[in-house]
Design a protein around this nucleic acid. Structure first.
Length: 590
RNA sequence: GGGGCGGUAGUUCAGUUGGUUAGAACGCCGGCCUGUCACGCCGGAGGUCGCGGGUUCGACCCCCGUCCGCCCCGCCA
């Protein structure tokens, strides 16, 4: 019955094909049955063509076509014809033609799908994830996967051209509890022992440098068992690279070249390089976050010195105890009601701020319930510091620096969206450099690496490593795009002595360091070259380039917020037999 | 672990102070239809109101618990 092969794609048939006989295959997008004539929109990966069943062309096919339903898979053969005058469909590329079917083969039937295969659907994500194979038939999802493919292709083309080798690293590897929570895999032949899935190929790529491979890259899956967010999945993909005999400038330059190539090939966007740079402290000072969105203003202003002159205890106490007072000018927001300002306060409270002080800027000065604590001249200075003009709302957070930066930094992003200050057509790249090497962890009462424990300190700060650990800067750099960290890396430690010092600064004694990272320390003793690298979040780049609101929209088979797969049902219970082979007995602890 | 939003037909939603038979649109099924492309017309089917308790003469509605999805905090070297 099916004696013909498809020779064309639905979306690629045009006026130049008129008169030709074509064979196409695909899914029934839509059936419009007029009794005498039947129109079908036939869809394949390339797009849609209208096919026509007429009894005058083939009464057999026309008869059979009455049975066609949504998402049936069919193959048809027929002549391409111009549509009659005035009957062209301007909305689709193939709208000028149609195919008169003389032969129809029904390759498969379909149940009525639980939702329609359309570009804009309004259904629960629940259903989309359960029937992912149907969701992926929709053009926006298909486009996202195509975009990912283009990103990967551009990445490989660029890095191959720069002398990189694509090398795979193990998925079953050693647990190194420093960092995120590991996913563990039991070893059958070593009862009681576990592999971990890699959080990143960090140590392997460094060892590839020790091995003399010089330039490595990999588009690689990474795993972190932490709670999910709109831009975070437990398994995600990194564009990972490492280079020998380089410094920061070499790596940033190659990274800019790679990102430019990706934007050019995936979206036809030409980026200007080099990207703007900010130090970590500049970023915090102006934007409150180490991944600032520079597409809009609303910068933070420090009024700690002025706050001390006030009689407002919230302000003076914060500064006196080593904290600060900073504020943002919200243009045109003086008309906000008490309720609206209360809602703003909730936006900073979630980041630990205790409240939001505010002033409305009027023609005759600042207005607020707290003006009585400030001399008029002081109010004027505060207003001037923020550049307040009549109609603005000035808001302030007074706290220790960490809380002020984090709450106002996030508040700034939220208000920019709310006030519609963001130009969505812009791609603002920047490098953030000079990160602190270490960060005090209050819970564990010790320093932790801000980037990771293999990051090299700045040469100039080496002497501070013992005396003032928090003042040591790292040779690390993050690439930030529109307020999102899309990549980060560093120059690594390549001498054993320094690496040991670093472990010691992290509160790890010799024995512990040896147990966890002995293989690295040993490798560093055999002629490790200076090296460094960077890794990019492929999913986040794809998200931004596609404008997707969720990382799930750029991953073929993503997990839900509870890290389950609604299509397969993973994770699931396993047979007792499987556990026995692994010598594992399970007991759920409270 | 915590805060917030949601769960009623296949889908998206409505559902009165707690009251008798839970509605609409789209989709689906049947019939008619030779120029549709949001086809049209006529007719029809379709509901454990997420789940389990409780209050009540009576619960989609009120209370308690629980499950699932989403957003956020914590977490993510």
């Amino acid at each position: 019955m099916n004696t013909f092969k498809r020779n064309r794609h639905c979306g690629e048939i045009g006026l130049s094909d008129v008169g030709q006989e074509v064979a196409i295959a695909g899914w029934v997008q839509k059936r419009r049955d007029h009794g005498g004539l039947i129109f079908i929109d036939l869809r394949d990966r390339s797009g849609i063509s209208q096919i026509v069943f007429s009894p005058e062309v083939s009464s057999e096919s026309h008869q059979l076509a009455h049975d066609l339903r949504s998402e049936y898979v069919i193959q048809v053969k027929g002549a391409v014809r111009n549509r009659p005058k005035g009957m062209a469909n301007e909305k689709i590329p193939t709208g000028g033609i149609e195919i008169y079917v003389n032969q129809l083969a029904i390759l498969n039937t379909s149940l009525t799908p639980p939702f329609m295969i359309e570009d804009d659907i309004d259904i629960s994500e629940n259903l989309r994830l359960r029937y992912r194979y149907l969701d992926l038939r929709r053009k926006p999802m298909r486009d996202a996967l195509i975009l990912r493919h283009q990103i990967c292709r551009a990445t490989r083309e660029y890095l191959n051209g720069q002398g990189f080798l694509e090398i795979e690293t193990p998925i079953l590897t050693k647990s190194t509890p420093e960092g995120a929570r590991d996913y563990l895999v039991p070893s059958r032949v070593n009862p009681g022992h576990f592999y971990a899935l890699p959080q990143s190929p960090q140590l392997f790529k460094q060892i590839l440098m020790v091995a003399g491979l010089e330039r490595y890259y990999q588009i690689v899956r990474c795993f972190r068992d932490e709670d999910l967010r709109a831009d975070r999945q437990p398994e995600f993909t990194q564009i990972d690279m490492e280079l020998s005999f380089v410094d920061e400038e070499d790596i940033m330059s190659i990274a800019e070249g790679m990102i430019s190539r990706i934007f050019q090939e995936a979206r036809g966007i030409a980026l200007e390089t080099p990207f703007q740079r900010l130090t970590y402290s500049q970023a915090l000072d102006r934007f409150g976050l180490d991944k600032p969105d520079t597409r809009f203003d609303l910068e933070l202003k420090d009024i700690s010195d002025l706050a001390l002159e006030s009689g407002f205890k919230v302000f003076t106490d914060a500064v006196a105890s080593g904290g600060m007072v900073r504020g943002i000018r919200l243009p045109g927001c003086a008309a906000y009601s008490r309720k609206e300002i209360d809602d703003l306060t909730d936006d900073v409270k979630i980041f630990g701020a205790k409240g939001l002080a505010w002033f409305k800027v009027a023609e005759d000065g600042l207005q607020s319930s707290i003006t009585k604590f400030f001399e008029p001249a002081l109010l004027q200075k505060i207003s001037d510091r923020l550049g307040g003009t009549s109609g603005d709302l000035l808001v302030f957070v007074a706290d220790r620096s960490g809380v002020v930066f984090e709450s106002l930094g996030n508040f700034r992003n939220k208000m920019a969206k709310r006030l519609d200050l963001i130009d969505k057509s812009r791609y603002n790249f920047l490098w953030v450099t000079d990160f602190p090497l270490l960060e005090w962890n209050e819970n564990e009462k010790r320093f932790a690496a801000m980037h990771h424990p293999f990051t090299s300190p700045c040469e100039a700060d080496l002497s501070l490593l013992q005396s003032h650990p928090s003042k040591v800067r790292a040779r690390a750099y993050d690439m930030v795009l529109n307020g999102s960290e899309i990549g980060g890396g560093s120059i690594r430690i390549h001498r054993k002595e320094l690496q040991e010092q670093m472990f010691s600064a992290l509160g790890m004694d010799r024995e512990e360091a040896g147990n966890r990272f002995g293989f690295l320390l040993e490798a560093l003793e055999y002629g490790a070259p200076p090296h460094g690298g960077i890794a990019f979040g492929l999913d986040r780049i794809a998200m931004i380039l596609s404008g997707a609101p969720s990382i799930r929209d750029v991953i073929a088979f993503p997990k839900t917020q509870k890290a389950t797969c609604l299509m397969t049902g993973a994770p699931s219970m396993v047979d007792q037999k499987q556990l026995q082979e692994l010598m594992i007995k399970t007991e759920i602890l409270e």
